[in-house]
Amino acid sequence: MFTAIEATGVRELDARPTPDGGLLAPLDRPLLGWTREPHGWCRGETCLPAFRAAAAETPQGVDVAAFAELVGRVAVIDQAERAVAFADGTGPLAGGLTAGHAPDFALDGVSLAGLRGRKVAIVFWASWCGCRYDLPAWQERHDELEPHGLTVLSVSLDRTADDARPWIAEAHAAARAPHPAVIDTEGLVAELYNVINVPTVVWVDEEGRIARPQDTQTATDLFRSMNGLDSAKSGEALRRWALDGDAGLDAEQVRRHLRVPTPEESRARAHARLAAWLAREGRAEAARRHLEAAAALAPHDVAIRRGLMPLTGEDPFGDAYFALREELERSGIPLYRPLPVKE
Rank of each mutant, 00 (worst) to 15 (best):
A190H: 01
A169Q: 11
R141V: 07
Y133G: 09
V123A: 06
T200Y: 07
G228I: 03
D184Q: 07
A175Q: 03
Q217L: 08
D215P: 09
T185I: 12
S234Q: 07
H148E: 11
C131W: 09
L157N: 04
W203H: 01
C129W: 13
G130V: 12
R224G: 06
T216M: 03
G187N: 09
G208V: 10
R141N: 06
A177D: 10
D230H: 13
P178R: 04
V123K: 06
T220F: 00
R212L: 01
R212T: 08
E144H: 08
S225F: 07
R165Y: 10
D230A: 05
R165I: 05
S156E: 06
A232I: 14
W125Y: 09
V152P: 00
Y133M: 02
I168D: 04
W138R: 07
E144C: 07
D205L: 02
W203Y: 05
T160F: 03
R165F: 06
W167H: 12
T216C: 08
P147R: 09
H179Y: 04
D215M: 05
L222K: 15
V201E: 13
A175H: 06
E191A: 13
D221V: 13
L188F: 04
E186M: 11
A174R: 15
D162V: 12
E206T: 08
S234D: 09
D221W: 11
W167K: 04
C129H: 10
V201T: 15
E140N: 13
I122Y: 06
S231T: 05
A161T: 12
W167M: 08
A137D: 09
P199E: 02
G208F: 04
E206Y: 03
R212V: 08
L135W: 01
Y193A: 14
T200R: 09
A177L: 11
E170K: 15
V201D: 01
S234P: 00
D134N: 14
P178C: 01
A211L: 11
V155G: 03
G208Q: 06
A219W: 01
R159P: 07
V123S: 06
D134A: 14
R159I: 02
G130Y: 15
Y133L: 11
S156G: 14
A169F: 11
E170H: 11
A126P: 05
E144M: 02
P180C: 08
N227H: 15
W167G: 01
L192N: 01
R212P: 08
C131H: 11
C129P: 14
F223P: 00
D143R: 05
L135N: 10
W128R: 11
A173H: 05
E206I: 03
S154M: 00
S156V: 10
A161M: 05
F124H: 13
S231Q: 04
V182P: 06
V204C: 14
D215S: 11
V155N: 05
V202P: 06
L157Y: 04
T151N: 00
P166C: 10
I196K: 12
A171I: 06
P180R: 12
E146G: 04
R159Y: 02
V155Q: 03
W167Q: 10
F223D: 13
V201F: 02
D215H: 15
E140I: 08
W167S: 01
A232R: 13
G228N: 04
A181L: 02
W167V: 03
H142S: 02
A211C: 07
A177Y: 05
L135F: 00
D143F: 13
E144S: 09
G187C: 10
N194F: 12
C129F: 09
E191S: 15
A177W: 12
H148T: 01
